[in-house]
């Protein structure tokens, strides 16, 4: 082959032009995509009906998590939007007891509250909507009927009626000679829990657990309720902090739901001890405190805790001789 310099130079000029145009085009595309975030579309739809939002709306929940859900869910706290399509609708139940400005949304609904696109923000979190949302209630509240957590309450009842606690202990309480401790079973997905309940050996070959197909398959609601309750046991986002419950008691209490900021201010040096935190930086109250009371439903029930001296001795010596 032999090159014709003049002709090649011309072709190169055209090539350069096309390549530059492509680069410019890509840049324009990137600019266009970045200027059209999902939430702006929703904010435009409600323009004039709510005070000028313009930009992401941020709150910091009581767990210290930045929560941007209300950038799209603009009207959760406003009356008059009950008939709007979903992101713009008023919250289905009153938020008076759980104002989003204090709690954020993710503390109940899970997901990725910093994200601003629905796909990332909602993720695959089963607590986003539907019955599994009630698993979140169990993280702080005793299951009670008629308080918006009927599924959870039914599930807790089923747990007892089906005799799950006969084999499975909860935090070492209850249970007989077999069955793994279910203190952290809430970390598993609902799909996994349903599969184990209906056909244990398909997931855990050789398991001695009987299938609950006969009881649960006939009533899908029962299966869901039980899974909701199991899902409430040590939720993935909750701290690994366990309060002992009375023998046969059902629910563990992650203290840091409420105490995350509180302890530091109240108790000073004791709680700054690094041993109290696990590697994720979560407080492990159960190292020192255990509670003989059932789950504290209100603040006044809570302080019923005693210290376990043995754990303090890890660092401070048996006789309190000082920091090792």
């Amino acid at each position: 082959m032999s090159l014709e310099p003049a002709r090649d130079a011309r072709r190169l000029k055209v090539g350069l032009l096309i390549a530059s145009a492509l680069c410019a085009g890509v840049l324009v595309l990137a600019v266009a995509r970045a200027s059209q975030p999902e939430y702006l579309r929703f904010q435009k739809q409600l323009a004039g009906r709510i005070p000028d939002p313009q930009g992401p709306i941020e709150v910091t929940g009581c767990d210290g998590e930045v929560d941007r859900c209300m950038s799209c869910h603009l009207a959760v706290e406003r009356a008059g939007f009950e008939k709007e399509p979903l992101p713009l609708r008023t919250h289905s139940i009153s938020l008076a007891a759980h104002p989003p400005k204090r709690f954020g949304c993710a503390i109940c609904h899970g997901g990725e509250p910093r994200a601003l696109d629905a796909k990332t923000a909602h993720g695959a979190d089963p607590r986003m909507k539907g019955p599994h949302l009630e698993a979140s209630c169990g993280a702080c509240h005793v299951p009670q009927a008629g308080k918006g957590m009927d599924h959870l309450e039914q599930g807790a009842r089923l747990f007892i009626e089906l005799g799950c606690g006969t084999c499975h202990p909860l935090s070492g309480r209850g249970g007989w000679d077999f069955g793994s401790d279910l203190r952290a079973i809430g970390r598993k997905s609902p799909a996994y829990l349903e599969k184990v309940l209906l056909d244990p050996t398909s997931v855990l070959p050789g398991a001695t657990m009987p299938s609950f197909q006969g009881t649960l398959a006939q009533d899908e609601q029962m299966l869901t309720d039980l899974v909701v309750f199991l899902g409430s046991l040590a939720l993935p986002r909750s701290a690994d902090c366990q309060m002992r419950t009375r023998s046969g008691g059902l629910v563990e209490q992650p203290c840091t739901r409420c105490h995350r900021q509180g302890v530091k201010e109240q108790d000073g040096a004791w709680h700054r001890c690094g041993y109290l935190k696990d590697r994720a930086g979560e407080l492990r109250c159960g190292n020192c405190h255990s509670s003989e009371s059932p789950i504290p439903a209100t603040e006044s029930d809570c302080p019923n805790v005693r210290s376990r001296r043995a754990s303090c001795a890890v660092c401070h010596g048996r006789a309190g001789e000082g920091v090792r």
Binding site: S171, F178, G179, D240, Y275, A310, V314
Partner: peptide, 23 residues
């Protein structure tokens, strides 16, 4: 991390059980 740590009281573990301690 401390090499000697308390892991619970005997009642936490049932006879015939296998327990996983996360931390």
């Amino acid at each position: 991390a401390a090499a000697q740590v308390p892991i619970g009281v005997p009642g936490d573990f049932k006879v015939g059980s296998l327990n996983w301690l996360r931390e």
